[in-house]
Amino acid sequence: MTSTPQETKQENTAHVGDLLPAYLNGTLEATARSQAQRHLAHCAACREELALWMALAAASREALAPSTVAAPSPALMEGVWARLDAPSMPEQLAGGVWRAGRLVRSQARLIPPGIWLASTLATVFCFLGFLLLGSHTHTDGAHVAALQSLIAPLVTGLCLAFIYGPEHDAGLEVALSTPTSPRKVLLARLGLVFGYNFALTTAVTLVVALVTGGSFVALASLWLGPLLLLSSLSLALSVGVSTMVAAIIAGLLWILHLFSMPNVLLIGPFGSDSGSLLSLVWQTNPFILALALALLLLALFSAPRRVPQQV
């Protein structure tokens, strides 16, 4: 492409100040470079500016040269490899899940078999109750849920009293002799035993709700609060005091509640509790759930986080 005389004249009169740094460092493309050269040939002002830029460039190369600082440490790359080889966040998460799974599996083998047996028998008992009482007039399943609200809290509470008692549990002693945090061991066992009891109780309620057409939420609310409260109380006493104290207090509370109920010997409607203090807490409401959560946290934080040092 050739320039017209007018364009050439304009190029020759236009100053090239902005292009001079690029002209000096050799990054100006060929066309612009020859255009700048043509202009500099007859423009004294731009030549003077070029002289200042040249002085500035020379001084910059001298004063700002990388060789003016010491070289970085030779061990720097070792730090780079260490960071590249460190597990990423998803890998750390996966590792945590895998370790938690391994802990739960190992604890499942160490939990006394009597705990699993008691939970299973309680469930069978409630289910039998459902079958035997099914012909009664209570067709919405409330009688079975009421039975569950008596049986499930007691059984779960007693089970949890025995998951953290070294005096009765050789398996726990083995677990606590490992570097695994006692709190994590407790959490794993709590998850297993409470989860098992909760799953069985929920399953029975679900079957009852499906067969009778009753509301699952309404039925579950009959036993959920008492189950959580007695379980967390028992666990907190077990960790904080002793297994036997936890078991005895859980049993006593249950007996007191049982005898505060009307028609207890008839195993009938169970629908009209007296106004005793126990009957006030033997239900599902936000206060009971918060109390249960507080006791659970107390139990977990009472368990040592680290393995006690052997003296």
Binding site: N25, T27, A55, L56
Partner: peptide
């Protein structure tokens, strides 16, 4: 040239950075 070098040291870091990239490392605009 020494006086220019001394003057460079007094420039704002932003300006020194531009000079460093343009004249020492010869980057294009």
């Amino acid at each position: 040239r020494a006086e220019i070098a001394a003057a460079l040291a007094q420039l704002a870091p932003q300006h020194r950075e531009a000079l460093l990239l343009a004249f020492v490392h010869e980057l294009s605009y």
